[in-house]
Design a binder for these strands. Structure first.
Lengths: 334, 334
DNA sequence: CTGAAAGCGCTTACAG
DNA sequence: CTGAAAGCGCTTACAG
């Protein structure tokens, strides 16, 4: 089955029929420059007729370049990796690269080992990881970019810009009168989770507000649920900054199960703008992240590294936007 | 940057150092059989020392096989494609194939054209599409499997087994006393959507129940919302069978916005067991689909076709399981 | 069980 | 602007 049987048309055959040398045909396919219009036309014709396409494996062998990139997907139950993946794939193809997908499982050390093995395989020219990795990208034999986690490149004026909407959220809630906050964190091996937590703590301190505590979490609804369930009565918390929409959804559910009104008694913010959160009751306040831009950006950076070119300009505007919906409101009149 | 510069260790060098011919080393890497233990040991040593790995591109060139599969991802906002993708990727790697990801956009004709181009590229030995395609797989130059949509293979005793939980849902609701149903369909270019609709209509007819109507939908919460919003007062509908959880979530929201109780006035079922649906209020009744099994299965089938082997056994048990949560309850006392 | 020869289909210098 | 030669690193028959 498949191509092994098909007697393949070679570049020589195309050259012979077009009455040119095969080098000329090679040139035609590589950049189509410096050819006489007539030569080009003759080749056009034969290529069309034979439906010839250069054998990319042979090219790879000769150039010693695979034109392949790998993307390492985390074992996550969230949607953003697909969105990012799709944009990354399109961006890679536009630059002539194929994108191979590899799922990385296990703990940070396992994932790092897997990615390093991939980078050393000689099969790919670069690796894009959507999973946090316990390794220094500089130690990789081919360029390695980690994104979707904390993104060095998108940091703008300071290294925490990625998480800066947390400050906006707190300001917004403080403006409504909230004074005592709870943060339910994401898995701390993700730099994004660590950054959101840090911005939360910094902002609370800077504004003279109170953080009742930072509850540990793992991006799951259950962790949000447990955190709110565990709040003592009368602890004074009126607002929750959750690491993402899943955590927020769990937090809201726990509040409702306790007989609290949302947002009457407790306001909740998530992150990611999951489609279901918009139709939930009450609908989730959140942060929309442009994963398409993030995916394109990450691939552009990776390809620049692969080619030894300078890193491309970061996107001018923030890819984050805070969205206020029904889970955010004034605190109960004290 | 990258491997172009690195002077690569060749099989000849390994052979020379191990004191054997390079064919022996080739044999060692292909199946490691028929070698004298001592020969094997000598090669082991040198391979380790040199950290040698065969150049897979050269092998590909010689064998005229790429050992690559492509997976076409739909432009969907749902999570199941990732789950399926991850399982597919792992299954492919276990069989020595790489899985390249390609996102297919546009209408059915565009997607079909893109997939066909991929199949004809000579770059991949088979294509797995998670997107419905307006083409006959038999017309593809390499094996083509379409899944995640309607899966020929998983149909079991009849061609609608994939959608059979719809019958279970209706039976369950009828058992609670429901008599008038509404189905909000998924995008009709998906065979899964057509099948769910057909099973819905057949089951309603067979059980002597009433279908108020089948509302068109496109898998989105908005389509679920609009369908319920558009229901005339007093239409008698007490139960909604939605095409998936997104549609169901929209339907629930619309009901609540109309002042209806869920499930007091309206029961709703979704499909996919999205994590957020479990923590929504009320939590969504749904159908859990084992996308891991589906992904492995699809890749196994594709690889069997690529190798010209008989199709593997389908999974013995159904990969679907209905889950009853808070959106399902008895109809209002008439 | 192991070795020598031929060739997969390109591209890269190098000439002209 | 276009052509002849060499070689990328393997595997596949075919001998021994």
């Amino acid at each position: 089955m498949g191509q092994p049987d098909t007697p393949r048309v070679t570049i020589h055959e195309v050259a012979r029929r077009a009455g040119v040398s095969h080098q000329t045909v090679s040139r035609y396919f590589r950049h189509n420059e410096g050819l006489k219009p007539e030569t080009r036309r003759k080749i056009d014709l034969v290529v069309q007729e034979l439906n010839y396409r250069p054998n990319l494996v042979a090219r790879s062998m000769r150039t010693r370049r695979t034109n392949r990139l790998a993307i390492a997907l985390p074992a996550s139950a969230h949607l953003w990796p697909v969105r990012l993946l799709r944009a990354a794939s399109a961006a890679a193809h536009a630059e002539g690269f194929q994108l191979e997908v590899v799922s990385v499982e296990g703990d940070a050390a396992d994932r790092a080992a897997r990615v390093l093995e991939l980078a050393a395989s000689g099969q790919v020219e670069g690796v894009l990881s959507l999973s946090p990795l316990a390794l220094d990208p500089a130690g990789s034999p081919v360029p390695l970019v980690v994104t979707g986690d904390y993104d060095d490149h998108l940091r703008g004026v300071n290294e925490l810009a990625d998480a800066s909407p947390v400050a906006e959220i707190i300001d917004y809630l403080a403006g409504l009168g909230h004074r005592v906050f709870l943060h339910i964190a994401g898995a701390q091996d993700f730099a994004s989770a660590r950054n959101r937590r840090r911005v939360y703590e910094d902002t609370i301190a800077r504004r003279g507000l109170t953080s009742y505590s930072v509850a540990p979490g793992d991006w799951s609804p259950q962790s949000g649920y447990d955190a709110v369930r565990a709040l003592p009565d009368g602890c004074g918390v009126t607002a929750v900054v959750a690491a993402n929409d899943h955590v927020a959804m769990g937090a809201v559910r726990a509040a409702l199960d306790r007989g609290w009104r949302v947002p009457g008694d407790l306001s909740v913010f998530g992150w990611d703008d999951e489609e279901l959160g918009r139709f939930a009751t009450p609908s989730l306040s959140t942060v929309a992240v442009d994963r398409e831009v993030q995916g394109r950006e990450a691939v552009a950076r990776l390809i620049a590294e692969v080619r030894g070119e300078p890193a491309p300009e970061p996107p001018a505007r923030s890819i984050n936007r805070i969205i206020i919906r029904e889970t955010a409101g004034p605190p109960p009149a004290a």
